[in-house]
Amino acid sequence: MDDARTLLTDLVSTPSVSGGESEAARILVEAFERAGREVWIDEVGNVRAPADDSVLLTSHIDTVPGEVPVREEDGFLWGRGSVDATGPLAAMAVAAVETGVSFVGVVEEETTSRGARHLVETRDAPDAVVNGEPSGWAGIVLGYRGYHAGSYRVEVPSAHTAVDDQNAIERAMDWWDRVEAAVGDETARDATAFERATAKPVGIEGGVTEDGLATEALVDAQFRLPPGTTGTDVESTVDAVTESGAVAWDEPIPPVMRSPRNAVARALRAGIRAADGEPTHLRKTGTSDMNLFAEAWDVPMATYGPGDSSLDHAPDERLELAEFDRSVAVLTHATAALAE
């Protein structure tokens, strides 16, 4: 394939916010075509390059919004997506070409996971999966919390603001206080962040309705689910403290935790040691497409990729180029072993 760093820089330099991945997808397609690989863009925008299905290397093409000027400085490549997850994506593409295994770049991981959902619905399970997200070149991610989102809406007939009765905005604020306390009480306070359910408001709107006859409020909320917790569990907890109004729920993503003894983790550890690193096992408090792959496919898997995940979505997002090079070497070593 083309020089790995060139592919990385081209992808980071190409805006690919969720829903707008087409230009970055084209760059990936052209790179695989130049390497003589079969490749196409599927119905939802995923880049598919099928080959030896003993391993599927996959990462997401999209990024969150936010402009981080692209530049190379002091051995780092700055730019939106350099860490999450264009660095891992480029490393996966290079290793897939080097070893002749299957590759998919998926869309909309940062929003709906549309690409991963479509993928598991439209192809058979591979023998193993390496999902691309920043873990640090010597880290291996084995677990992620799950995710559930809902929108609470309440409407209350209008009244003078001097009246003591709560308007819709006040009811929404009280609802959130009850939800946050109830979800927090579901798990022990001394548990780690990975082991706790958490709730976070991500948007709120409210005011007088257009016809002037009521006040209304809308709260968008996200919930993170530790292993052993389901979306139904969270819905039941929230419903129990919802006294007025109603919550509309999205489709949940379940938590995942894989054994460090699975074949992918073993291969990645060997690759890290071959590059003179000391492997570490990680559990992430966020959520990734690995959650969906693990739900659909009962095969060995883990998440791996270059980058400091504390820089995910950050205004100073940047990737050390030497770390990127090492991650390509680790992935190539591990994938070759899995493909034997």
Rank of each mutant, 00 (worst) to 15 (best):
N46R: 09
E170F: 13
A138S: 14
M1A: 14
T229R: 12
R283P: 02
I140N: 03
G203D: 03
A188V: 00
I204R: 06
G184Y: 04
G87D: 06
W175L: 12
S135G: 10
T303H: 05
I204H: 12
A217G: 10
A182V: 08
G231C: 03
A199I: 04
V163P: 00
D308F: 04
S18C: 00
E251F: 06
L225C: 08
E67P: 01
A263R: 14
P306E: 02
L321G: 06
E251L: 13
V163K: 11
L7Q: 10
A246G: 13
D52Q: 07
H313S: 05
D52Y: 14
V141C: 11
G231F: 02
V104Q: 07
A221F: 01
D164P: 13
A49M: 07
L11P: 03
S16R: 11
A199Y: 01
S54C: 07
A96Q: 02
S16N: 09
I253Q: 01
L331R: 03
S135F: 02
D164G: 08
S16G: 05
F76N: 01
E278V: 15
T287W: 03
R273Q: 15
P300D: 05
L268S: 07
L282Q: 15
E320S: 11
S236G: 06
V29P: 06
A91I: 08
R318M: 01
V17L: 06
A337M: 06
L319F: 14
H333L: 00
H118A: 11
F103A: 11
E155L: 03
P300K: 05
G81Q: 09
V64H: 09
N131I: 07
G271H: 02
E108D: 15
A334G: 07
N167E: 12
V17W: 07
A265W: 10
L7P: 11
S13A: 13
A85I: 00
V328A: 03
E43S: 15
E340M: 10
F223N: 04
H118Y: 15
A240G: 11
M301Q: 15
G136T: 12
A91G: 08
Y144H: 12
E235H: 02
A31W: 14
D185T: 00
A294S: 14
D2S: 13
R318L: 07
A96C: 04
